[in-house]
Design a protein around this nucleic acid. Structure first.
Length: 995
DNA sequence: CTTGAAAGCCTTTTT
DNA sequence: GGCTTTCAAG
């Protein structure tokens, strides 16, 4: 990857250090803490101090270690020291990341290992999940889910140097009742748990923790966290080794010290020894990696470890104009002081109070007699996201065309908290022809890479119908989608074989041939995934765009990973599936084109831009909402003293620092966009950070506010052309107008699907698209079939044994084809257990069953409904009870009260069977509870109205996608146009047109 | 001050 | 689908 020098730091190279910087640079022996605010030249201080130590002969290069947190800054550090000491040899100077240094130590001492990153560890364990023997921390419906929480917890333990042994000892104390039980479930759920189960959960964690460690050790694997913990153990346990290492680390320097975690501070403390020549530079107000283990108290820990610490504060900012610095201070100063008050009691020499940074640029301008006031920070409020986007786009266009200070697109950056905050903006930019570049875009969400993955999947397994459909839509096959759709609809879904259908179409045969040909190529023995994917890209003539190249690199990197067994394409596809489940993404590298930069506040750390806009600067976007971890890290295991402050408060403080980081990226202008909030008066009141800030008088002079406006810019039309957003053929196909009307055969769930996402509704009925049926649905079907048999037997007074019923369940589930063996077994066990309990309870009551899976049809206005009632019991001459079995998460009373499904059953009872349903029941099989409800006439009318509204939407042919969180569960997610992320298409030939 | 409805989010990411 | 925050009515 090409690496750009950190532009923030570069200008400082030739600048003469001021007095305080000089003080830090000239420091030689003993511990020193340099608190270097944003843009105060901390890298200069670090590099010049290293140069100084060597130049003045205090240390040989090979006695100095400079530690950073990124490879890039390590490389930059080395380059700059070399620059300082032109001509002098600096062989042996160690400038590397904390992790790399520890890893190097381990390797030198014969304790090296292969590294798994977080996602790979997840995949590694997911593949061996059976061996973890999970009981409380696994759910059949989502096998991998709890793995997230377990791994998060174990990572946290590592950050605090708690290994399996320490945790096991902690659990023993729990068993003896010496310490209070920790939270091991969501707060709400925890209250329902018996103490015994809480303890069992802890024991399970302890067991899994040590199992995982042993699994890794057995294969000589480790994580990034292990680099730190194992290096620590080595140094701690072997005095001789420690002495030797100390000789090579006589002078320690650490950059970005606010990102250090407890374990790292411990290592520093070991290496530093009595001489304690430790020099740490950082900004406590820019600590934004707590979520990844960085201790919010790194500076406090440092001061505690090294009581003789001297402190230097750098406060002269070379980057920004004063209004920006003033506002940034106003925001961040709402946080408590950076050192815990306890330090003062210990008679420590450290005294530091947060002060506003001074703008050197403004000072210099004043000295030169320039009088123009620096522009104020703008707070722009909006009511709708679209207006926010329009106003910002307009602002950028206007600024760029400003005659006095013309600038490039790349002088603008838009910062946001979450990736999806940029979506509206991307569309707005495209509309106006503003070039943009997205940092960290997940290429797996783009149509191009989805095409590549589909092509690879079909090359490996030509009968993978979902992928085949996508491949068939590639423009080169020039298939007629209307014909294909008609052909697919003509077959019943269960009998649909996409290959057969393609075979009947004029141009379909070419698709099959092409697939067959590449299949022969790829399935040969010994073909590796990275080769296969290149073959596929060539074979299908896919563009090698930056997106596709990022994916190809991902495959290539995967090939040499430690978890890879055969390296075959099918192993890769399995990996990719798990990788996505683990939350993995493949980030698009930053582009070098002249374009507006779109990036998260995290990604912007250390960078600077002339003009910065922060969007969604109000809760719940920024700050983002807090989510507690499933497993709380117990106070008894904490080494740092943060136990007193609760995690939610710490989260908000970190968000405020992140906001501060975002603000201080700006050189000249800063605009903050925020939701205007609800207010009785007509004045904007953005929530959270800005609200506190805007009522604070000292900062008034630094900012102004105005509402956002949806200005259309006509001026520039013609010069900049609308940018075509990438959209796949398959997306265009699915968006074609509906081929028929769908107002007949509507079920309750179909109506709910339409309400959730009309496009999904259309796809359910229109193409007969191939899709994977989830294991939970198979499970539900198997359970229902058994219950039907059970009550049918009662109805017709046939004898049927419990064992026969369980056997029926076993064979039904076995026939369903749940692909994941482990998940299958979990469901098998769960089903048998639930059925036993059900039968046990059912023996006690003997309802008079009059229908099992009774079908009905119902006319509501123009809509024809159809459905099936699980069970109907007679409760009187004209009354019935209707029972619906639920196999998933138990339904609540509230669910039952407003269920459309039950409303429609009540209607059906009246109109199809001529009975009044006086009880409508959800029977939850998971906990064997029955939730009963009723419907009044007016409630039934309301249900009809709801149906009617949906029917009208369908009749009008309205099927817009409604992308939301539920897309995660949508079977068409990977085909859906709405989940494809837009990328600015650089003058793409308009090849992909639907004919 | 309490309460209930409405609006969002379910991350962020060097090594 | 579940949880948290926010706002305004009572």
């Amino acid at each position: 990857m090409t690496y750009q020098l950190n532009s923030a730091a570069s200008p400082a190279i030739n600048i003469v250090p001021d007095e305080r910087q000089q003080q830090a640079i000239g420091h030689v022996h003993g511990p020193m803490l340099v608190i270097a605010g944003a843009g105060t030249g901390k890298t200069t201080v670090l590099t010049q101090r290293v140069a100084n130590l060597i130049r003045e002969g205090y240390a040989r290069p090979d006695e100095i270690v400079a530690l950073t947190y990124t490879e890039n800054s390590a490389a930059e550090m080395l380059a700059r020291v070399r620059g300082e000491l032109k001509g002098t040899a600096i062989d042996g100077l160690q400038a590397s990341t904390f992790h790399a240094w520890c890893n190097g130590l381990l390797q030198r001492r014969g304790a090296g290992f292969s590294v798994l990153d977080d996602k790979d560890l997840w995949v590694f364990l997911r593949r061996r999940i059976r061996d973890l023997r999970l009981k409380h921390f696994v759910r059949a419906a989502n096998v991998g889910q709890f793995l997230d929480s377990l791994l998060e917890f174990m990572r946290r333990c590592q950050d605090e140097l708690v290994g399996p042994a320490e945790y096991a000892r902690y659990v023993e104390r729990l068993e003896r009742g010496e310490v209070p039980l920790p939270r091991v479930a969501r707060s709400k759920k925890q209250t329902e748990l018996e103490d015994e189960e809480i303890l069992e959960r802890c024991q399970e964690i302890a067991r899994v923790f040590s199992t995982v460690e042993n699994m890794l050790l057995a294969k000589n694997l480790g994580t990034f966290g292990h680099m730190i913990t194992r290096a620590y153990r080595l140094l701690k346990d072997d005095p001789t080794l420690l002495e030797e290492e100390r000789a090579r680390t006589r002078f320690l320097l650490v950059d970005e010290f606010q990102d250090a975690n407890c374990a790292q501070v411990e290592i520093l403390s070991l290496l530093a020894g009595a001489a304690a020549n430790v020099f740490a530079v950082g900004d406590p107000d820019q600590a934004i990696y707590q979520f990844r283990g960085a201790s919010s108290e790194a500076f406090t820990l440092f001061a505690r470890k090294f009581p003789a610490t001297r402190v230097v504060v750098l406060g002269k900012n070379r980057r920004s104009l004063s209004p920006i610095l003033g506002c940034a201070f106003g925001i961040v100063n709402e946080n408590p002081p950076v050192f815990s008050p306890t330090l003062a009691h210990q008679g420590n020499s450290i005294s530091y109070q947060r002060t506003p940074l001074e703008s050197l640029r403004d000072e210099e301008a004043k000295q030169k007699g320039e009088t123009a006031a620096a522009p104020k920070v703008e707070i722009v409020t909006w009511g709708e996201k679209e207006v926010e986007a329009a106003d910002l786009a307009h602002r950028i266009q206007k600024k760029r065309k400003n005659r006095d200070q013309p600038c490039k697109w790349s002088d603008f950056a838009v910062l946001y908290r979450l990736h999806n905050h940029r979506d509206e903006l991307v569309h707005e930019f495209a509309e106006r022809g503003i070039p943009f570049s997205i940092e960290g875009l997940d290429v797996l969400d783009t149509s191009e890479v989805r095409d590549v993955v589909a092509c690879l999947a079909v090359a490996v397994s030509p009968d993978d119908a979902t992928s085949l459909f996508r491949v068939a839509a590639l423009p080169q096959f020039a298939l007629n989608p209307v014909e294909l759709r008609a052909a697919m609809r003509a077959v019943r879904r269960q009998e649909l074989d996409l290959r057969n259908v393609l075979g009947t179409l004029p141009k379909g045969a070419a698709v099959l041939e092409s697939v067959e040909k590449v299949h022969r190529e790829v399935r040969k023995d010994g073909v590796r995934a990275d080769h296969a994917v290149n073959v596929v890209v060539r074979h299908f003539d896919l563009q090698r765009s930056a997106l596709v190249l990022a994916f190809l690199k991902f495959v290539k990197d995967w090939q040499s990973k430690a978890i890879v067994e055969t390296g075959s394409p099918s192993e890769f596809l399995e990996y990719l599936d798990y990788f996505v489940q683990a939350g993995g993404t493949i980030a698009l590298p930053r582009s070098t084109e002249d374009a507006v930069q779109l990036l998260t506040a995290h990604a912007a750390k250390g960078l600077e831009y002339q003009h910065v806009a922060i969007i969604r600067g109000s809760s719940v976007s920024f700050p983002s909402s807090y989510h507690e971890p499933l497993i709380a890290f117990p106070a008894e295991l904490r080494t740092s003293g943060t136990a007193s402050t609760d995690d939610k408060v710490l989260h908000e403080q970190e968000e405020r620092r992140l906001f501060y980081v975002a603000m201080t990226r700006a050189r000249d202008t800063l605009a903050i966009y925020a939701n205007q909030g609800k207010s009785t008066k007509n004045e904007p009141r953005p929530t959270k950070f800005l609200r506190e800030f805007m009522v604070s008088p000292p900062y008034r002079k630094f900012w102004s506010t105005h509402p956002a406006a949806a200005v259309q810019e006509e001026l520039f039309a013609g010069e900049e052309q609308r940018i075509a957003l990438e959209q796949s053929n398959v997306a265009a196909w699915l968006l074609m107008p509906a081929s028929a009307d769908f107002v007949s055969g509507l079920s309750a769930s179909a109506i709910e699907i339409y309400e959730e996402c009309p496009l999904r509704f259309k796809l359910e009925r229109e193409w007969n698209l191939p899709r994977d049926v989830s294991a939970s649905l198979h499970y539900g079907a198997a359970m229902h079939s058994v219950l039907r048999t059970f009550y049918d037997a009662r109805r017709y007074q046939r004898e049927i044994g419990g064992d026969d019923l369980l056997e029926q369940f076993r064979s039904a589930l076995a026939a369903a084809g749940v692909a994941d063996r482990y998940q299958y077994e979990l469901y098998l066990r769960q089903g048998i257990e639930q059925l036993r309990q059900f039968f046990e309870a059912a023996r006690a009551s003997a309802p008079e069953v009059i229908e099992t899976e009774g079908r009905f049809e119902l006319q509501v206005g123009s809509a024809k409904l159809s459905g099936r009632v699980d069970r109907m019991d007679c409760t009187g001459p004209d009354t019935v009870a209707i029972v619906d079995y639920k196999t998933g998460k138990p339904k609540s009373q509230e669910d039952a009260d407003k269920s459309l499904q039950l409303s429609l059953y009540a209607l059906a009872a009246r109109e199809r069977w001529g009975k009044h349903a006086d009880r409508l029941i959800f029977h939850n099989l998971e906990n064997n509870t029955a939730i009963s409800t009723t419907r009044t006439d007016s409630e039934l009318e309301a249900a009809k109205l709801r149906v009617q509204e949906v029917a009208e939407g369908i009749a009008r042919g309205e099927f817009p996608p409604n992308p939301k969180y539920h897309c995660v569960f949508c079977p068409y997610r990977n085909l859906c146009p709405a989940t494809e992320k837009a990328v600015a298409a650089p003058r793409k030939k308009s090849a992909s047109r639907v004919h």
